[in-house]
């Protein structure tokens, strides 16, 4: 994996990410926009699924906020790849970065499991939210916030 990171850092993408005046700062902005959309979408949906804002209908929120969160991820991943390419060999050995990636995998697995376990129950969520689903939603929000926090922490650790 470390050899792969060294190769990515030396690749044209890595050279461009470091060398261009705009590549890094613009990738940073897009990464931040994606984060805002992810937490703004999934985070608010998670709060509702966990039990907050009970006047808001769960199915409608799911329909509109989930795509926003997914769009956020679609921005986050390629922008993150550019930021990663600039410093890949140092990042790949950074404990904070490794935790961040591990928690991203966990958060995505949690989201996948959520669909499998609870998607069919959404219609009845407003009257009868299952405890397991509420806990997983709270876990989802916590995980994404931790991921965001660790991402910011990389530069200071």
């Amino acid at each position: 994996m470390e050899a792969l990171a060294v190769a990515l850092e030396a690749s044209p993408l890595g050279v461009w990410a470091r060398g261009s005046n705009l590549a890094y700062p613009v990738a940073n902005l897009i990464h931040l926009l994606g984060l805002v959309m992810l937490i703004g979408g999934i985070g608010v949906l998670d709060l509702r699924l966990a039990g907050a804002f009970r006047r808001l209908p769960v199915e409608a929120l799911w329909r509109y906020l989930l795509p926003m969160g997914v769009a956020g991820l679609v921005l986050l991943v390629p922008a993150g790849l550019v930021l990663f390419a600039a410093d890949a060999s140092s990042l790949v050995v950074s404990t904070v970065f490794r935790w961040k990636v591990a928690l991203i995998v966990l958060a995505l697995a949690n989201a996948g499991a959520y669909h499998l376990l609870w998607r069919k129950r959404l219609g009845r969520w407003d009257v009868d939210p299952p405890l397991g689903g509420r806990i997983m939603a709270a876990g989802s929000l916590s995980l994404w916030l931790l991921v965001a926090g660790l991402g910011r922490w990389i530069a200071y650790a």
Binding site: D87, S89, S90, L91, V93, S94, T95, V96, W99, W153, I154, A155, Y156, A157
Partner: peptide
Amino acid sequence: TLHKSLASAIALAVLIPGAALAHHGWSS
């Protein structure tokens, strides 16, 4: 723990030559 992982991240950044991540911000 997060605390331990941060401490090891700092240790790693100091130990590994060329690890150019252990800075940023003026507070350090």
